[in-house]
Design a protein around this nucleic acid. Structure first.
Length: 271
DNA sequence: ATGGGCACCTGGCTGC
DNA sequence: TGCAGCCAGGTGCCCA
């Protein structure tokens, strides 16, 4: 479920219920996530006040005076704020119970997500240290993308999905951004002109920004547990539309596989 | 350094 | 109805 807009929506949704609260206890029902939930996480968190909730790439950083909980939702994870005695369902792996009587509950059927603990500056953690710029912040743009693409022969779609280049561009929005920019996903990154990189960078920012906006109106202090949140699905131009007419030129949308993932594009609009 | 492929998991859907 | 096969919004790691 989670791409950047979903993670950002989660971040905004849970933050008001967390910041300023103290952790009363931590319940771990399943430690086997992508990496095991660290032994001792319970002890490190219990009694701590939560001072911040931030996002970096698709990682959520839940800060306390003692250290930071790094959370990633993987492909199927969610974080929701519930009453502490709300009945659990399958794959509710971890509860962080707050002094408000509510709890932050981590659910993840596929267990590709993770919960880790780091002391000191979380951005120096190995998972975060090498990440590229945020697509909605300073430092990201066409010139940047173009300069990073020198000598890179990977397909442009895989290039923009590489978190070392730019973070937060997942499989849906990669296809959508390339459609908006009119670029064929298989084009080698080094062969995309500077001008088209400008269009691509703008498309990436636009698509993600729009999706965040829609997610924000759908979700408040909870996290939508199902599928594409709310209303972005109907604004997709190509994703999961194989064989259907292009919304711009009516040519049937094509589906191909790149890097073991589905890519969708319009063969006419994207040359 | 780069690029390609695999791995980790469960669940939902399709088609026989 | 049952079951095999395929697909899924991520990303770290291993190998050539």
């Amino acid at each position: 479920m989670p791409e950047l807009p979903e993670v950002e929506t989660t971040c905004r949704g849970i933050a008001p219920s967390l910041v300023g609260r103290r952790v009363e206890r931590v319940v771990v029902r399943e430690r086997r996530l992508r990496w095991p939930v660290p032994r001792g996480l319970e002890g490190r968190l219990t009694g701590r006040a939560i001072t911040s909730v931030r996002r970096r790439a698709k990682y959520l950083l839940i800060g306390t005076e003692a250290g930071t909980l790094i959370a990633h939702l993987g492909m199927s994870g969610s974080l929701r704020v519930l009453d502490q005695d709300a009945p659990t369902i399958a794959h509710d792996h971890v509860d962080i119970v707050l002094d408000s009587g509510r709890c932050l509950r981590f659910n993840d059927p596929r267990r590709f997500g993770c919960l880790l603990w780091v002391e000191g500056d979380p951005t120096r953690h190995a998972l975060l240290a090498g990440l590229g710029p945020e697509p909605l912040e300073e430092g990201f743009g066409g010139d940047y993308l173009w300069s990073r693409a020198r000598g890179r022969r990977v397909a442009i779609k895989l290039f923009i999905m590489n978190a070392q280049v730019v973070v937060g561009v997942g499989n849906i929005y990669a296809s959508e951004a390339l459609f908006r920019a009119g670029i064929r996903p298989s084009t080698p990154a080094c062969r995309v002109s500077r001008q088209r990189m400008q269009a691509l960078a703008a498309a990436i920012s636009d698509v993600l920004g729009e999706a965040i906006k829609v997610g924000g109106t759908t979700l408040r202090d909870y996290v939508n547990p199902d599928g594409l949140p709310g209303y972005f699905r109907q604004r997709l131009f190509v994703y999961e539309r194989a064989g259907e007419p292009c919304r711009r030129c009516r040519t049937p949308i094509r589906q191909v596989v790149q890097g073991q993932r589905s890519t969708y594009y319009c063969p006419r609009c994207q040359q």
